[in-house]
Amino acid sequence: NNNLQKAIDLASKAAQEDKAENYEEALRLYQHAVQYFLHVVKYEAQGDKAKQSIRAKCAEYLDRAEKLKEYLKKKEKAPAKPVKE
């Protein structure tokens, strides 16, 4: 299944970028992956078990994406670190 594979690739890339602390890219990839997964669940025949696993995993990705979003927002607002003389 092409879309499922694409979704898995995106999620795996997201996790990689997340670990590499490229949080903006990771956020984008998690959101993209979830879109693909939901499309697969909705329009492409999957077993119930597979659908459940995908939905559960999507919830995890969205949760992580939310944390990344919060972090990026805080970081943007935070003043630059003062430099010690």
């Binding site: 996790a15 997340d18 670990k19 597979a50 696993s53 972090y71 805080k74």
Partner: peptide, 21 residues
């Protein structure tokens, strides 16, 4: 049955995000 196989879905990293001062 087809489509009921366990899916290997990538895990979310467990690392905490850095603190923003």
């Amino acid at each position: 049955t087809q489509g009921d196989a366990d899916l290997e879905l990538p895990e979310v990293p467990e690392e905490e995000l850095p603190e923003v001062p």
